[in-house]
Nucleic acid binder design. Structure first.
Lengths: 347, 347
DNA sequence: TGAAAACCTGCAATCGATTGCGCACCCCTC
DNA sequence: GAGGGGTGCGCAATCGATTGCAGGTTTTCA
């Protein structure tokens, strides 16, 4: 043991990090008693407990998380992870992710857990099981399946406290929460059709399950209306507005006619909007635009964006609720949240 | 020790969490050697090293962070903390914070560190020293001083790897990075004056150091122009758009005349914009509006918001750069970032 | 060939906490 | 007054890794 520090009372300011043994010595008890007292164990009588707690406070002692975590097997930390298998250079600063993350963090910190953020740039096989085994967190929230469905499945089979924001996929062994992507997309396209639009562009990165669902909804709606799908109108677009902008400009340049755009996300829709504006196309007179998400941005765009609203706050609340139930050992089902169209000015 | 797990090779799927001793046994060496091999220690010859690493990979072993952190004294984690002394119910989902946080997280994760997010709702005296002592992270980035200047000072005196986003204050013992708030505000008000505006409203929560600086810039500019400050025009507004909206509506209701609004943040400006719109006031014809921040939102508002741009990406990069230098033991100075006015349509 | 140098590897202490088990003491009760 | 039940507290093992030190083997060089 290191030598007892001198003049602890006189110059409390310079006190190094105290250990539990220090408090034990100061209180004239053993570390067992200190540990139990700080943990509000009924084994220690209330008066002793208070005394020890007071001593700890007076000396500015706090339990060292490293020791506590090792011994007690609980970190009181939730990890929010974003796998970027589809696009390694997408950043955390993506508005959709940030908005969802903000709500998640609010919910988690309201439960007095810490939030650990992990960005997984190029997921190597086994990344998730490895991450789980590293014991950095008690539970995981995966935001977006990316192309990691199998990996997540594998991890979820052995590890209960894991929930996923994303599409509900067949053969899914994990608990997911997500929006009704197919239904939302169908409703969006229906609205465009009802407005008399017939040549509707789809913009989105179909590598992602959620976007695939939205594409399916798009096709469903066209099919039901008896309109053949034109492959030219289905354009890839990443999660940055720039590629959407380029895609729309490309269409215009190639002289492909269209009278509406269904964007698989608001960020993409804003990119499309800019492309149309710079090309002198009037929205919504010449071309209608509808997005997906209803980010804060949507309300403030010009023209204000009509979009399919995902209730991220509710989604985040559900994810965290499920996760904490799972931490207690309970199985929880997956959930699909309803969406609704928010009518603004771009349609 | 627990009994050696049977049939490890046959049913690798069901293997529980392996420990370093398991790998040692499999490789026929001691844990010392495994530990060193995994840490790329030159004490172990390269061929042995590779062999052991391969065994670890094959069996899906990863080092348990709890043990490693305890023993090695390093967590490879950076904590981003937001003290909310001024307003306990502000959420992480605030757009300004999220945007800065996104850039911080990008920078930190690019350096292969984990990001821990902590929201401090009602900072109790000593919260920061306690947090530091809990050993959850190697370094701290505090976003916004709130009213915790003294607390941060106290912590920084004993703990080097700590940087702060915020105003540069007198008697400051810590390293801060922030924008030129006074200069930015002065430039904004100058621009309004140059446009012929004379009765300029200030909207902002002056409890915060940064906002106080912006208020000072506002007063500076008026003073230099020989315009007396009208207390009626200085209105409190929190970080949500709602209070800004209410404040502007209040002004209109009380019949207080004004021809411009300088908002201390973009979110506040958007609230003001809405209030003006619903009251039938034309922007910028009747009233000019200028914000502060240049969030993504600003570009998309209607009318598009003229604002004082803070370069958050650069700011985040500087904060993280300084923090990592401090982790190496180097002292770093504070920095004040230049700002510039982004002209759009609201002025 | 022998001694020194260089190279590997393992023992055991250590990081800072938690907790099962058992001892000591006190108070009742018959 | 002896036995029994309850209460309060400490001993020591344990969580899973890292690392100084020392011992053993191989290489090098005279």
């Amino acid at each position: 043991m290191r030598p007892p520090r001198a003049k602890d009372d006189e110059k409390g300011k310079t006190a190094g990090p105290l250990k539990m043994t220090d408090i034990a010595r100061l209180a004239g008890v053993s570390t067992s008693t200190v540990s139990r007292a700080l943990a509000e164990s009924p084994l220690i009588p209330a008066t002793t407990r208070r005394q020890i707690q007071q001593i700890a406070i007076d000396h500015g002692y706090v339990i060292d998380q490293r020791g506590q975590r090792l011994r007690s097997n609980r970190t009181r930390t939730i990890c929010v992870a974003i796998p970027l298998g589809h696009e390694a250079d997408q950043l955390i600063s993506d508005p959709f992710f940030l908005q969802l993350f903000g709500h998640l963090a609010d919910e988690i910190s309201a439960r007095h857990y810490d939030v650990l953020l992990s960005r997984i740039p190029s997921p190597a096989p086994g990344w998730l099981v490895r991450h789980v085994q590293s014991q950095k967190a008690d539970g995981y929230i995966i935001v977006g399946q990316s192309n990691q469905h199998e990996e997540i499945n594998a991890a979820a089979r052995a590890f209960l406290p894991l929930v996923v924001w994303g599409a509900h996929l067949p053969e899914q062994a994990y608990c997911s929460v997500g929006s009704d992507n197919v239904g939302g997309a169908r409703a969006a396209v229906d609205a465009l059709l009802q407005a008399g639009r017939r040549r509707i562009v789809f913009l989105g990165a179909t590598a992602l399950p959620e976007i695939q669902m939205r594409l399916r909804g798009y096709m469903n709606a066209l099919e039901r209306a008896g309109i053949p799908v034109d492959e030219d109108l289905i354009q890839p677009a990443h999660f940055t507005g720039d590629t959407a902008l380029a895609a729309v400009q490309g269409l215009i340049a190639r002289g492909i006619a269209f009278d509406a755009v269904f964007a698989a996300s608001d960020v993409i829709a804003l990119g499309a909007l800019r492309a149309l504006q710079t090309s002198g196309v009037q929205v919504p007179t010449d071309v209608s635009v509808i997005g997906f998400d209803d980010l804060d941005l949507a309300e403030h765009s010009h023209p204000r964006l009509t979009t399919v609203r995902q209730d991220l706050k509710h989604g985040a609340a559900a994810l965290v609720e499920f996760l904490f139930r799972r931490l207690e050992g309970e199985e929880t089902p997956s959930a699909t949240l309803p969406v609704r169209i928010v009518r603004r000015d771009s349609l």
